[in-house]
Design a protein around this nucleic acid. Sequence first.
DNA 1: CCTACCGATCGGTAGG
DNA 2: CCTACCGATCGGTAGG
Lengths: 217, 217
Amino acid sequence: MIETPAPAARSEETRQKILDTAARLFRRLGYRSTTLRAIAREAGMEAGSIYYHFRSKDEILAEVFDLGITLVFDAVKRAVSGVGPEKPWRDRVRAAIKAHLDAFFVHGDYTSTNIRIFGQAPQAVQERAMALRGAYENYWKTLLAQAQRAGEIRADVDLKILRLFLFGAMNWTVEWFKPGGVSLTRLADTYTAYVFDGVDAGRAPAAQPSRTRARRA
Amino acid sequence: MIETPAPAARSEETRQKILDTAARLFRRLGYRSTTLRAIAREAGMEAGSIYYHFRSKDEILAEVFDLGITLVFDAVKRAVSGVGPEKPWRDRVRAAIKAHLDAFFVHGDYTSTNIRIFGQAPQAVQERAMALRGAYENYWKTLLAQAQRAGEIRADVDLKILRLFLFGAMNWTVEWFKPGGVSLTRLADTYTAYVFDGVDAGRAPAAQPSRTRARRA
DNA sequence: CCTACCGATCGGTAGG
DNA sequence: CCTACCGATCGGTAGG
């Protein structure tokens, strides 16, 4: 019953293995230090064979970039649309934050490569990825704008600054998050609470299910 | 009256020019794509001459890292200690945020190199920079802990998470900030307000000198 | 600080 | 998908 996969499927599998390996090496070593020979070795083939699947090193990088953005974007859209229409916008923002963070660690090599080495990619590769990046940013712009229009974000908040503030906080987690400590769900809850409520002691602590603390004066 | 600088000073000047050039290229191109030949060219000398001033490419990178951290650290310490003792801790945090952001753009190539390509540096170089990085992180840890002990940050806030949250937001500015738009002072004020007060519409807007808005219900 | 050079390695290709 | 190879370029060094 177990058969050899059809040639097309087999090839697609190898292609995917090359991308996975490349993403992992790009993330750790950067663009130039990642050599096609190293990718080939870890993917179990010879260097020249990569050109059977890709036209150039830049094309591999470009696909890693695209896949990284797409995986995050899709996960975020799915999470947000899963929040009931009667729920406040804060819940949708929280779902988006959680999905964004989750995607970092399910597809960590792709997303980290995006964050870490986008700036050092050849310009042609950057330009190709810009469209997808822009679409993802626009999604967040709209999400935050709706929350503001609904009155859940103060009208004096500059949404562009807020979005970049939040993106920074989220994207930085690729530099320090390790599984085993704080969970991603808890981290997403915490970040959401920081953004909406702040950490000031003169305010009520963020609503969190399992622990309520006395408030100061 | 204008004399040729003493040989020692001249050499120090060249050394500095090499570091400045290297930092700029490291930031833009990454570690491996930045070649000693390119550094030499833009610093106005031949590739071999760099070895009169540095022992290796790695040593240049290590010095760029160290300088980047030191410049930010010193600026932050200076800014914080300039806040009057009667002032609330929030003012010290705000001063630290502003100094951290300012340093990014006064010494942008050094600090951006630190943020962008630390992960792709050879391990020996990373290890050397760890001590300074740790010292800077500890400084922030202490600062936030004092604010919490003074009751200005809620007792239930995890300071490690808060620090990483804030570092992410601050460090991400190297990816998007361009002079001419929002000022760094305003950005630091805004980030401080976000962290302490949040953006929720059910709360008072962050205290800002020139504009007070009506508060919602 | 320069000239001239070395060994190593790279991205990519031809031909199978 | 492999073998064998090319031209280019790299970090680093010797000798001045």
